[in-house]
Simulated scan of single mutants.
Amino acid sequence: MGQEQTVATLQDAVRDPARMTHAWLLTGPPGSGRSTAARAFAAALLCPDGGCGQCHECRTALDGSHADVTVLATQGLSIQVKDARELAQLAQHRPSVGAWRIIVIEDADRLTERAADALLKALEEPVPRTVWLLCAPSVEDVIITIRSRSRHVRLRTPPVAAVAELLTRRDGIEPAMATYAARAAQSHVGLARRLARDEGARGRRRDILRLAGRVRSLGDAMEAAADLAAIATQEQSASSAERDAAEKARLLEQLGADPEARTQPPHIRSQLNALEKEQKTRATRFGRDVIDRSLVDLLSIYRDALVAQAGMPVELVNADLDDDVRALAQHLTSEQLLGAMDAIGTARERIEANVPPLLALEAMAISLRLPR
């Protein structure tokens, strides 16, 4: 789906051992399909026919259940040293049933320095028949000692038409809705599917975009920042409450504990505390991701206003909000639009650097005030 060059590179490696290497770094913007490409590559390496997509090896590699495919996908703030050490030890073992042992790290950009150091020896002294597939948004996001020992393959953002066609063909979404969702999600397949299926998600996105036209005073700025933080909190609660409860119930069942008991033995309480800590870390990461996505959406309306102002023959991301885009283009000069985009980018960087989200959002919103 718009990744022909990348597909050709990986297919060549499957067919020709001379083109194969022990570590691959797959990079691309959010929604470009990095982890999907990694799993498909793993399936092709294990498949007797080089990736038929139908055999047992392909199906189990794609869904992550193959004995020789290990996938690390963290939902926390970072990948810890203990996880990296476990993978480094696993890499020393020969494949169980297939031709390769394949280790996929979906968020290689979240490796801490100590975790990266724990992987270094495994990458510097590769074991025959073990392949590392590392995924990250860009080369710069990966610690240099890791990226220097990997072969880089870059995925690009797929065209809107390709994403819309996929939603229609695979998910049965009506073509007009698929096109809207693909454009609004800026070709992020997962987000496009969610927008196409969830009216609530579409409504929240419209509310975020319309913040740009309502921030005129300091009070408006504080209210807009609070609204953005509240949207993240709502999505975080809706996403995690049911899953957290199910995880707790499953842990109690595995430990043979009574879920109705008012107090639990010390060894069970310690494991429950560890689970709660992990869930809080995951919730923090998810909340930051929701805010970041909201800021990407907000950035898009300033981008559209700049395009409209310049009269450029470029398709608008928010064509359904054309009146809002035109109004913004009339109220702000090109320099002010660029300044607003810089303020949003700064807020994203600050939140990623652990600045409290509400504080970063308030500083951003103050910079987004429309002139009187």
Rank of each mutant, 00 (worst) to 15 (best):
G172R: 10
A67Y: 00
K82W: 03
A192W: 02
L167F: 08
A340S: 14
D220F: 01
R59E: 01
Q5V: 12
T70P: 01
A40P: 04
A225D: 02
L368R: 14
G2F: 04
S240E: 02
R85I: 06
H22V: 13
A122F: 02
R15Q: 14
Q264M: 12
L255T: 09
S334H: 11
Q54T: 11
R151L: 14
T70S: 09
P128Y: 01
Q11G: 07
G190L: 03
S294A: 11
V139R: 13
T145L: 08
G190P: 05
E315M: 14
L45K: 05
R193W: 00
D141P: 08
P356V: 10
E362S: 10
A73T: 06
S270K: 15
E352N: 15
D171L: 14
A274L: 11
A353R: 15
T168P: 12
L120N: 02
Q186T: 10
L328A: 09
K280A: 14
R194H: 08
L25S: 11
H56F: 02
L119E: 07
G256S: 03
S96Q: 13
G256C: 05
L321A: 13
Q330R: 14
M222K: 05
L72C: 00
A122T: 09
C135H: 03
A212N: 02
E260D: 11
V131E: 02
A241K: 07
L120Q: 04
Q11A: 12
D107V: 04
Y302V: 04
R205M: 03
V160H: 12
V307T: 15
L77M: 05
S78Y: 05
A84V: 05
D227Q: 15
D63G: 02
P95Y: 07
R151F: 12
T333M: 09
R147K: 13
L166K: 15
R262H: 04
T333W: 08
L370K: 13
L316P: 14
C135E: 02
R114I: 05
L209P: 03
D258R: 08
L46H: 04
T130H: 03
D342P: 13
L370T: 11
I79W: 04
I351K: 15
S148G: 12
L218F: 09
Q254I: 00
S65C: 00
Q309V: 07
D244E: 09
A161N: 13
P266V: 07
D258Q: 05
V317D: 02
Q186G: 06
Q271W: 05
T6I: 08
A246V: 01
P29N: 10
R149T: 09
K121Q: 09
T168D: 11
K121D: 04
T168R: 15
